[in-house]
Simulated scan of single mutants.
Amino acid sequence: MSVAERLRARTPTRRWVGMGAAIVVWFTLYEVNLPTWDWLVYDVVGLDVASRLGSGVHFFFYDSVKIALLLIGIIFAVTVLRSFMSVERTRALLGGRREGAGNVMAAGLGVITPFCSCSAVPAFIGFVAAGVPIGVTMSFLISSPLVNEVAIALLFGMFGLGPTLLYVGAGLVIAIVAGYALGRFRVERWVEPFVFETRLGGQVIDATFALTWDDRIQMGIEEVGSILRKIWPYLLVGIGLGAAIHGWAPEDFFARYAGAGNPFAVLIAVGIGIPLYSNAAGVMPLVQALHDKGLPMGTLLAFMMAVVALSLPELILLRRVLKPPLIATFVAVTGAGIVAVGYLFNAVIPL
């Protein structure tokens, strides 16, 4: 019996009991993911939690499962929700004159969703698929890893209120302005076509279809399977690369060539930060160590922003849904904003 036939055979009670059970299983898997890999990698296998090998292996398996679960949950939910509203209607609602407000809202949503750059990609795919304008969605993709409560708390504890407020304000400005600028470029043509298609039983549907709840659930299941089949090689390659460079940073090189006396220090910091991969909490100890060595605050914040907002693993994941011109434009616009903020901070915050 096919998925569609099984769904049609269900009574409403069985359908909603099944959905409830699936949600419970999803949340349970998400909650036990971290302790399970802690136990397997560090206790069963015996790798050292402080070693690059141990942290890299743990990172690969933990992040692979986490991002796969996020993809499943977010894509299913967004597919069911967008079955009630056509892509064209969503674009009309969030586009045009309201797009600037949409950028502000998306950037604010990103702040309260503490994803790393790769974890933000599933939500990004869901928003694009739902017809949210690409510029608005980019504001979320930038702000979610760039500004989050963990970074805010750590930065406040280490450096005080002033640098923390400047960091939050600069991160939001980068996300809003970069997203708005990308929206002005009309870059929708650089999004892979399958992202905008909703299918049911292999057939592309539109607003003329009369959908039942069973149809909507089937659409969600099919969309999850379709996108996972398309993206899983990119997912594993991206996370594998992130695991290989996890926890690594050329601290001595950084301190030598990105010091206060080098006018190109901010550019060097951003160039070093982009290939690395970490969340804000993971990179903060390095930021503090480099600050203790006398590196300017603007250079360090530019480095941190580059690490958490732009990473090679993230770009590899995005490649399955975005074409190279849009990825290059995204990196250029966001990187330029980070560089500008770095030089601004160096000018206003003395050593």
Rank of each mutant, 00 (worst) to 15 (best):
G247K: 05
P313M: 08
F27M: 00
I142M: 01
A77K: 01
R52Q: 14
E223P: 00
G259Q: 07
L276R: 03
A243H: 11
F124V: 10
I134Y: 05
E197S: 06
F59A: 03
F60N: 02
F330E: 03
L71V: 10
P114Y: 03
A178E: 07
V204D: 10
Y62C: 03
F254E: 07
A306G: 14
A50P: 00
E192F: 02
A210M: 13
S55Q: 07
S226G: 08
Y167R: 15
G202Y: 03
A123Q: 02
A21L: 14
I268R: 04
L300N: 08
I74G: 01
G225E: 12
S83L: 01
P350F: 07
V87L: 08
I205E: 10
I268Q: 09
A107I: 08
A207D: 13
G96Q: 06
Y42L: 12
F196C: 00
A50R: 12
R189M: 05
G202V: 06
N346E: 06
F124Q: 08
I274P: 08
E251V: 11
A269G: 07
L93V: 08
V307Q: 08
V195N: 02
T13D: 09
N148I: 05
D43C: 04
V3A: 12
F27E: 01
S119G: 07
F84E: 11
R319C: 01
E223Q: 13
Y343D: 10
S139C: 10
A107G: 15
M297R: 04
A21Q: 06
I327M: 09
S117V: 00
L236C: 09
A129C: 05
I268S: 04
P275H: 02
A280R: 04
Y277T: 13
A123G: 13
R199M: 11
N103K: 05
A328G: 07
F159C: 06
G95R: 12
L141W: 11
V24Q: 00
L211Q: 05
I349D: 01
W213Q: 11
M158E: 13
S119Y: 00
E314M: 14
D38G: 01
R186D: 15
F127S: 03
A130W: 04
M85G: 00
A129G: 15
A4V: 02
E314Y: 07
V121Q: 01
T36C: 09
G335C: 09
T299D: 12
G298C: 03
L322G: 04
L351I: 13
L211H: 02
F27S: 03
I205M: 04
V65C: 12
R256D: 14
S55M: 07
Y62Q: 10
G46T: 13
L141K: 11
A309R: 02
G242T: 08
V57P: 08
Y343E: 10
D214W: 04
A332F: 10
P163R: 02
F61D: 12
H58W: 14
A265W: 01
L235T: 04
P324G: 13
V266M: 09
L241Q: 00
A289Y: 07
L155R: 02
V321G: 05
I142N: 08
A281P: 02
R97M: 04
M19A: 13
W26I: 05
V177T: 13
G220D: 08
R229Y: 01
W37M: 13
V339G: 02
T198L: 15
V24E: 00
E99L: 11
L53N: 08
S226A: 15
N279D: 13
F159L: 15
V32S: 05
A255M: 05
D38L: 14
L53S: 14
M284I: 07
L70D: 09
N148E: 14
